[in-house]
Design a protein around this nucleic acid. Structure first.
Lengths: 211, 211, 211, 211
DNA sequence: CATGAATGAGTCTTCATTCAT
DNA sequence: GATGAATGAAGACTCATTCAT
């Protein structure tokens, strides 16, 4: 059956290439996540993707392009989430968004860790993949808070700091999982984590009415 | 005395060595912070410390030892803070601790960024410099929360998640500064940041009495 | 078959690798013999083998492994000789063994010189490649002498010293050739050398019956 | 007493320098013997001589000059022996020379091993310190043998090979001691070794009159 | 003279990338 | 397209020598 790889329809070819690229990306993310981009050799990438080193270069221009492709890949569901996510109106909305976010990051843990590892070192990565999205998220959170303050539901807090803390909360939930200190949470656990986090954010530690 | 052998008293020599080591450490922290450990060459370290490559090896056993020395150096004030910090009793206590922590991390920003960069990649760094201290901090936070719950001041929240969020809050405050997205805050600004963060943690977003 | 993956049959590949290794070994032996292991750079080895420095590392784990491979290679014919060599019964047997030994050492002069150079400095080389074989040789010589003494053909000499002297004789024959002071002897010359050496060992300088 | 090192009589100064040089030489020979010239660092030499690295350069032009000085030093007694040694007339003469030679080499074992180590690698060493003396020794041996042949005491053997074997015999006696395989022999043992070696050389293995 | 820190050329080794098969 | 050997620039580290103190 076509063992000689005769000419294919362009679309077939295109699909094969795309499939192969994703195989490489998945394998590479695993290695990058474990050892960091700089400590990973192309030999390791090739082995993980079960191909020869040279073959990598048929699908990517180089090691760095594989990293960028990984980060692009991981952004697809995140961007989808951000597109769909309305400014939450109820606590339940909020919980749902946090829960979804957790789901996405956990589902592609290697990608997440790769991203979080490179953010600190690579300015391009920071700018192209994080800051832009952070701004979008930041705006949503700001809207949410501002609306709450307007509506008299939220106290008049500094929006900047508050936004940061919301994100920090999320990051704190992610970190031990990404870093392998905690096991990967089930969907149920993620739901509970999101609930607790949102509850804490909304109501604080204190007993209500205790001044 | 000693006119025959060495030109310096041993203590003088010792001090000179210690001074030189700190010069190297300071210079190296800056470079590691910018480019990450793995992307930094010993040539760059030497240039930054304004000496020849070989000279580095008169003071450190190798590149990695410089990294570890940096992290050790940065842990000194942190450990001092942890030693002195009692479990906070009042919100003001809490604010003060957060404020001090911010001060320490900001005062040695290069060290902080170096640490935060390597955590993701280097298991030894993670374990030796972070996890142990995190546990200590975690216990303090847990005590604080548990005591609050016992005293009827805090709601009965999941301690694990809450602890994480307290730390996440702190990390979120640090991140944009470390990463150069935000300018270095003044002491006053740090005080305000700490106040707001603690306020938010204690009271949440919501207006009191809104249940 | 195998049209998809590798361009060569595994056995072909294996043979190519083996050939390349031997090329490197031969070139390296020449350089090591001239300058000694410690004074030889990997660049020189690469140049001698007519390849880039990095290529060496596709075939050997490092400089030292090349040395050990050389010594292993040179031991193959020596061990074969030792396996086959019976305790000599007649003077002619004895001559033949010495002659063969000379032939082997001279045939791979670079290997021989490399070995003789490193013996003095490298304890591992001394133990792994020489002492073990010396013991075997020593036992054979001892057997030979002991048998001669028993049979009443040899005088009752100290076996230890005698063994050493037999080996020293051999070494003395080798040294000037290895060191380039004397030209490489032809087969005929080697035969004569062996004859004279054995004759001297058996009969001594003195005229028979002169006691 | 003169702790400031005021001006000394030139001869005193000269003597002090000479004493220091010999200290260095002795210490260096020990290290060179253990590790070989190329594997020894100037730091090690300085430590062994109990001085700073820089101080070495007040007494020698460099590492290599220390090696050459060692070899020169070791040649003094050897040359003395060679000067005094007459062509041996009786076996006892012969024994005495071999015994003296053993004594010299063993007395300065580090020097001996240093020499024997470098011969294989360093052409200058080979020529300046060995070949010239070997020729002198060779001539003596040749004279001895030739005279014996003339006088009808020795059989008419090939002088070249015989000379080599005499030297090889001597080398074989030395080697295991130099290389640390055998303990340093006492004067008595050296006498016995010399006797046996000379006896073997003169009379061979065979029982006299056995044809 | 003694010291030992500073130097930087030189070493061994790694690895991203290329390219002949 | 796939392969993996070849490449050589670059990196971490060493060490003989110099020189200010």
């Amino acid at each position: 059956m076509n063992s000689k790889r005769g000419p294919l329809f362009p679309s077939q070819r295109q699909r094969r290439i795309e499939r192969r690229r994703r195989e490489i990306i998945a394998a590479a993310a695993q290695i990058f996540a474990q050892k960091g981009y700089a400590n990973t050799t192309t030999k390791e990438l090739a082995d993980a993707a079960d191909m020869a080193e040279g073959t990598l270069y048929n699908y990517f221009d180089g090691k760095r392009e594989i990293l960028l492709a990984i980060l692009n890949e991981m952004c697809v569901p995140i961007d989808a989430l951000l597109q769909n996510a309305q400014v939450p109106k109820t606590p339940e909305d909020f919980v749902r968004i946090v829960e979804n976010g957790l789901g996405i990051f956990v589902a592609q843990l290697d990608f997440t860790r790769t991203l979080l590892t490179e953010i600190w070192v690579d300015d391009v990565v920071l700018n192209d993949f994080v800051i832009q999205r952070l701004q979008h998220i930041g705006e949503t959170v700001r809207d949410f808070i501002a609306r709450g303050i307007e509506g008299g539901n939220f106290r008049p807090l500094d929006i900047e700091t508050t936004t940061l803390m919301v994100l920090g909360t999320f990051l704190a939930l992610i970190f031990p999982i990404v870093r392998g200190i905690k096991p990967i949470p089930t969907a149920e656990e993620r739901h509970k984590m999101a609930q607790e986090a949102v509850d804490l954010l909304l109501n604080g530690l204190r007993v209500r009415g205790n001044g």
